[in-house]
């Protein structure tokens, strides 16, 4: 698993170096996406419309696309081409709520996941979801990073719990911890938020450096980062 996450990081940097994106944030959430797609999710790349639903926010598009390629949804070379790939949306959480509501009405069994970064939290949607009983898990990549530098939204856990959610806090780079938390979240009726504490730019020279929040790396920089990940 660690190795898969590393490979995903490398390919993510390559993709960002070509298409642009937020390198630090994407690197920090690689472990979360890897755990979900390679261990926890009930999904089938050949029938993408069945199984557990997953909604990802806009910022995490590159790492999501890379993970999907590694999971076998499409060829890896498509990542660096101008191909039509699934994209994250700004409204991932409200979309996930809608999907979970429809699932509940139809009496289907699958679970709905939403992966977001801490800077993209949709509080309006959190408020709405708190009033419903839904099979919904929100995974928050708590990397502390935003455009202006490090941001302060603590106490995040108490805030989310105040909206009638369950909240679990874990280390977002320890795969066993994420697995445990995701397992635990499935047992609740209420929507559950898993706050994954992560390090922006994990494993490279971009670590904990707000400069790399939204900066396209040059070819040399990308190679340097990939070298560091070996």
């Amino acid at each position: 698993m660690q190795q898969i996450a590393k490979n995903i990081r490398k390919d993510t940097i390559k993709t960002i170096a070509i298409k642009g994106g937020n390198p630090a944030v994407n690197l920090s959430s690689a472990d979360i996406l890897t755990t979900l797609y390679f261990k926890m999710l009930n999904h089938n790349p050949r029938q993408p419309k069945t199984g557990d639903r997953i909604f990802v926010t806009e910022k995490l598009t590159p790492v999501w696309q890379t993970t999907l390629a590694h999971a076998g949804y499409y060829a890896k070379k498509k990542l660096i081409e101008n191909a039509e790939l699934p994209k994250g949306t700004q409204f991932a959480l409200s979309n996930a709520i809608g999907s979970a509501i429809a699932t509940k009405i139809d009496g289907k069994e699958h679970h709905t996941y939403c992966i977001t970064t801490d800077s993209e939290l949709d509080w309006e949607a959190i408020r709405i979801a708190g009033k419903q009983t839904l099979k919904l898990t929100l995974v928050i990549d708590r990397n502390n990073l935003s455009k202006e530098g490090f941001m302060d939204i603590e106490p995040l856990r108490q805030k989310i719990e105040a909206f009638n959610w369950n909240a679990i806090e874990v280390d977002g780079h320890k795969i066993e911890h994420i697995i445990e938390a995701v397992q635990e979240a499935k047992n609740f009726d209420k929507p559950t938020a898993i706050i994954c504490h992560t390090i922006p730019g994990k494993g490279t020279f971009m670590e904990n450096n707000p400069e790399w929040h939204n900066k396209k790396p040059t070819k040399e920089e990308a190679e340097k980062a990939i070298g560091e990940l070996k």
Binding site: F55, T89, S94, N95, A96, I97, G98, A100, A102, I128
Partner: peptide, 21 residues
């Protein structure tokens, strides 16, 4: 009652449309 949701939120509608409704 089974075909009705109180909140007129377009994001939620997107999610519902995603499920083929």
């Amino acid at each position: 009652p089974n075909k009705h949701v109180k909140i007129p939120d377009i994001g939620i509608a997107q999610g519902i449309a995603h499920e083929g409704k």
